[in-house]
Computed example of a mutant assay.
Amino acid sequence: MTQKRIRRLQPAALGKERTMAIPMPKQQDIRRLDRQGVSRSEIARRLNVDRATVAKYADMDDMTPKPPTDRRRGSKIDPYAALVDGWLEADRMLPRKQRHTAKRVHDRLRAEIEYDGEYTTTPGYVRRWREANRSGSDGYGELVWAPGVAQIDFGVAKARIAGELVDDHCLVVTFPHSNMRYVTSLPGENAECLCRGPVEVFERIGGVPPVIVMDNATGAGRRNARGEVTLTAVFDAFLAHHRIDAMFCNPYSGWEKGAVENAVGFLRRNLMVPPLEAETHTQLGRIMLDRCDALAASSRHYRRGNAIGVDWQRRVGQVLRGRVPVR
């Protein structure tokens, strides 16, 4: 999904040019470094952006590109909008090559109602009408996730293990359909840890998701220059054992896994401040999973408004039923 960014200038009296968004790869670098626990001042220094920009993209809940908004003021074509709308609506019944072009709309307005507006206004109006009335398969939209699809990603947070402050590698598993989030503690991010962490979550929820979506091949395998992923033998056996289909996001396409990126930061801020303490990673993982369940019971779905834990049990639990992990 792409979005055309338009450079607009403020009126001269208001000062300088508006600030444009930074490129998507740099946005993803900000979120990746923030997920790893790098301070925001350090992120700003490394990427040569200001701290306000780092805070904006690190805290952003939804990375889905938004359609451009219509900021235009009234124009000469507005009084004739109903007439033009009727022409364009009638075009739906005609072959594509026999429909009104913007120039034909402009010519008819001038010929039939003595319209004296500039031609440059007409293409903009026709384009906006077609964007607003195109079929549902076109245009902008948010990603829709089926119940039972899980997203997986690693994050880093400080924790005390056996009294020592360490970098804890947190494996986050989120179910974006219900916005349910789980996190567990691991000593690293290799293939063995990538297999062990999800099993701890599967045992907690009493089932296995049929599909998992991952950011990249880290720990799972290697991605070549053509974008093809070759899985490690360990992770390939893990998927076969639990009958899971794995999908990998496209490079620089962070919106494909925005739910789990948001969950990494959300859980770190809400569950791991101050740093958690435990004797082992296994014990710390159980503490984290307990806190995730408690958090879901007290949090509401951002769109449906009901408790996330209730929504999870009603919707996703049915998909996982009968898929209990096998040791």
Rank of each mutant, 00 (worst) to 15 (best):
R286H: 07
N216P: 09
D167W: 00
D138S: 12
L47F: 13
S298K: 13
R92H: 12
A233P: 04
H301Y: 04
R130P: 04
L171Y: 12
W255M: 09
A55P: 04
P274S: 10
V156C: 05
Q318L: 15
H100D: 03
R5G: 03
H281Q: 02
M180R: 13
P209Y: 03
L143R: 11
L271Q: 13
I161P: 00
V172G: 01
T64N: 00
R104V: 05
S185F: 00
V183A: 12
G136N: 07
E192M: 14
T232G: 14
G15C: 11
V273S: 11
T101W: 00
K76E: 08
E200T: 04
S75M: 14
M20L: 15
V213K: 05
I161V: 03
H106Y: 15
P187V: 02
G163V: 05
V264N: 10
T184K: 04
Q318V: 14
P147A: 07
A81N: 06
D293F: 08
D59Y: 06
V319N: 02
P23A: 14
P147G: 06
G74N: 09
E261P: 02
G37L: 09
V273D: 11
K158A: 15
V324L: 12
H241P: 00
A297D: 10
R160G: 00
H242C: 05
Q151T: 03
Q3K: 15
A102C: 00
V208D: 01
D215R: 08
M247R: 15
D167G: 03
E277W: 07
Q27F: 04
H301Q: 05
E42I: 14
V173F: 02
M272G: 05
P325C: 13
K4A: 12
L267K: 02
W312Y: 11
I6R: 07
Y252K: 10
A157G: 07
V156P: 03
E189Q: 15
S137D: 12
M1Y: 07
C292M: 03
V213I: 13
P95N: 13
G219M: 04
S253L: 05
D78L: 09
Y119T: 01
I113P: 03
G285R: 00
P67W: 02
G258P: 00
V149H: 01
K56P: 07
L231A: 06
T121V: 15
F266H: 13
T121H: 08
P274F: 08
F202E: 02
F175L: 04
I244D: 13
V172H: 00
V324C: 10
A132S: 11
V38C: 14
D85P: 01
W87G: 01
D116I: 10
T53F: 08
R134A: 15
V201M: 01
D62W: 02
R46S: 12
N190P: 03
E89A: 14
L109Q: 03
T120D: 10
A233I: 14
R314P: 02
Y140V: 11
A13H: 11
A237G: 06
V183T: 07
Q98A: 09
L171S: 06
R8N: 09
R286N: 10
T218R: 14
R243V: 12
F235H: 01
P11S: 07
R300S: 12
C193N: 14
K97F: 08
D85C: 05
R128V: 00
Q28S: 08
G139H: 06
R327S: 14
V54M: 13
A307N: 06
P95Q: 12
R321K: 08
